[in-house]
């Protein structure tokens, strides 16, 4: 059985950006629940920004000791997750894994086979005039197509160039084809664009 989770690379999930109230409380809850569902020995597939966040969150729960950017260290006595891919999404993923009580480790690139995996990515950031990328009329259709691709488990047809124009975070998502086994079930735990950025929390099981 393989379990895969998608979470968005939202920097507001990072502890150093915490305010007195949580602007992403509902999203955070969904992310934590999904990441916890993965269990142990989790692989992270993400872009660059997630690594620092992940390290800090892991440190906060005692399963990870913060170090210089780009390096990870883990307890050798705990079940660990392997971190690979670009670091941005990794920080978010590591943070979520840590908050869910799952520790992580860095390691060499390798096969994803049969390992629980968290993928960090999200849709466009151009859904409203208040969105980071302002309103782009193409964004809603792009996100609809991306949602359909994610649900089907086949992202090979996603227009990555348009996604980049629309500030979508696709580094991890584009590798889903390597990760998802065919014939699995998908659950959508979160599907919203509260700040003009399209977020999903999804779970695949096969």
């Amino acid at each position: 059985m393989t379990r895969v989770v998608l979470v968005p690379g939202v920097l507001a999930l990072l502890p150093e950006y915490a305010g007195l109230t949580d602007p992403v409380a509902e999203l955070r809850a969904a992310c934590l629940e999904a990441v916890a569902w993965l269990g142990e020995d989790v692989t992270v597939v993400a872009d660059t920004q997630g690594e620092r966040v992940a390290r800090a969150l892991l440190s906060a729960v005692g399963g990870f000791e913060a170090q210089a950017p780009g390096r990870l260290r883990t307890s050798t006595t705990e079940p660990v997750a392997e971190v690979r891919g670009a670091p941005q999404g990794e920080r978010v993923a590591q943070a979520l894994l840590s908050a869910a009580g799952v520790s992580a480790r860095s390691g060499p690139q390798g096969a994803f086979a049969a390992r629980p995996t968290v993928v960090v990515g999200n849709g466009s950031a151009c859904r409203t005039e208040k969105a980071p990328g302002f309103l782009d009329e193409r964004a809603a259709a792009f996100d609809d197509d991306l949602r359909s691709a994610l649900v089907s488990g086949d992202v090979s047809g996603v227009d990555l160039a348009l996604g980049r124009e629309l500030l979508a975070s696709l580094d991890g998502i584009s590798r889903l084809g390597e990760i998802l086994a065919p014939g699995g079930d998908v659950t959508i735990d979160y599907d919203d664009a509260p700040f003009g950025v399209q977020y999903w929390v999804m779970r695949w099981e096969s």
Partner: peptide, 12 residues
């Protein structure tokens, strides 16, 4: 000494 009340700008 105090966090912002609610911070989301640039962190979405």
């Amino acid at each position: 000494r105090r966090p912002p009340r609610r911070a989301i700008r640039g962190l979405q």
